[in-house]
Design a protein around this nucleic acid. Structure first.
Lengths: 210, 210
DNA sequence: TGTAAGTGTGTACGCTCGTACAGACTTTTC
DNA sequence: GAAAAGTCTGTACGAGCGTACACACTTACA
């Protein structure tokens, strides 16, 4: 019986001088993760509404039964896939912001997050749209999304005041969304100047005075 | 045979002195629109991935066969439902912006669009998420979405320069999205001050100088 | 009234879906 | 070597899906 808290731990030991090896990782070490990655690919290609166990299994090159073995149904699988996406994206977000060592660099980092495509490529934007949509109908994914937004704001708070962080975060959310549908590429200078305008207004943003 | 370009036109005429009346509107005048509204309700409740012909038919209180009579499959139905949503929202957006008669009122209109809930309630936000997600996998909905974004920017252009319009539009997109997942309500003063910061920076926004 | 055209629908079909589960397979222990 | 424990999977089943279509119904006109 597979417990969903799969650790992947492998242990070797010696008993009475005899060296034994416990079965080397269930069978296929990274299988669960491979399934989750396959799920994200399938979602990116056809959307959640066309995502099925069979497509995921085929993409991950695992038998159909594997999915019911590792996950408690399709909702659980999707929730864990989106959680994996959120982890990856959050980390990238944080690394980008954290690397900045001055206010100028911090502003530049925000511009980078908005203009990409290092942070969010078309594929990631598609997945994010799917996640947001699905979150409105699934409590686990909703929690994942909230945690993600909170982590984003915390990352910005490394450099900016709370008010500025909220405003910039909204901008980082909204602008790439338009980029996803606009034909024209994003004007990097316009973005930079908008970011600067918000940052410069910090002393006047009310939430910071509370 | 029903042609999907249903006009709803009723015509009376006289031929050779005999007065005739063409059947007064197919049978159930607003049926097609009722089906589309029902579709949006079903989508709002369970998401596109749980939306089916049968649920829509039940919600609209029409027979199942009606849906295949009026629409060329589920993709067509969803596309027209989202087009209806976009029309409604676009109009509301434009009316809100257009009513402003000074720069101060224009800024206030933008704040209103962001903070709602007049413009976008939770239900509408859910539908918008679904539309964006679906647009990435359906050409017709993608076109509808692009047209919507363009109309939004045109509305803003009634009061603001192109650069400011783009920046504000991104903010109007992103901030309500966070509102949809945040526990805390939006701080209206912070929003107002952010909007003002962007508007005030207009002379320095590069796209306006081109 | 009879006929033709057009509008609308109940039913049924073929298909794919999620999921269950008997049992094959692998490793460990005796 | 045999048994036990645990890991994994191929197959099958019931449910629900989109869609087609024969046919009922309504109206227009002869």
């Amino acid at each position: 019986m597979y417990a969903c808290t799969h650790s992947g731990v492998v242990d070797s030991w010696h008993i009475g001088g005899v060296s034994g090896t416990r079965r080397e990782i269930p069978n296929d070490p990274g299988r669960k993760e491979r399934i989750l990655d396959a799920a994200l690919e399938v979602i990116a290609e056809g959307g959640v509404h066309k995502t099925t166990h069979r497509k995921i299994a085929a993409r991950a090159q695992v038998p159909l039964g594997s999915l019911t073995y590792y996950f408690d149904g399709i909702d659980d699988l999707l929730a864990q896939a989106f959680a994996r996406l959120a982890d990856t994206m959050s980390l990238l977000y944080r690394q980008t912001v954290q690397a900045a060592e001055s206010m100028a660099e911090a502003e530049e980092a925000v511009v980078e997050l908005i203009c990409g495509p290092a942070y969010a490529t078309d594929r990631e934007m598609t997945l994010i749209f799917e996640m947001y949509a699905y979150a409105n109908h699934n409590e686990a994914v909703s929690a994942t999304t909230r945690a993600w937004l909170e982590r984003s704001r915390d990352s910005l708070a490394l450099h900016f005041t709370p008010g500025v962080s909220r405003a910039l975060d909204a901008l980082i959310e909204g602008w790439p969304m338009h980029r996803a549908f606009d034909d024209a590429p994003l004007d990097r200078r316009l973005v930079a100047e908008t970011v600067h305008a918000i940052v410069s207004a910090a002393p006047r943003l009310s939430i910071d005075t509370v």
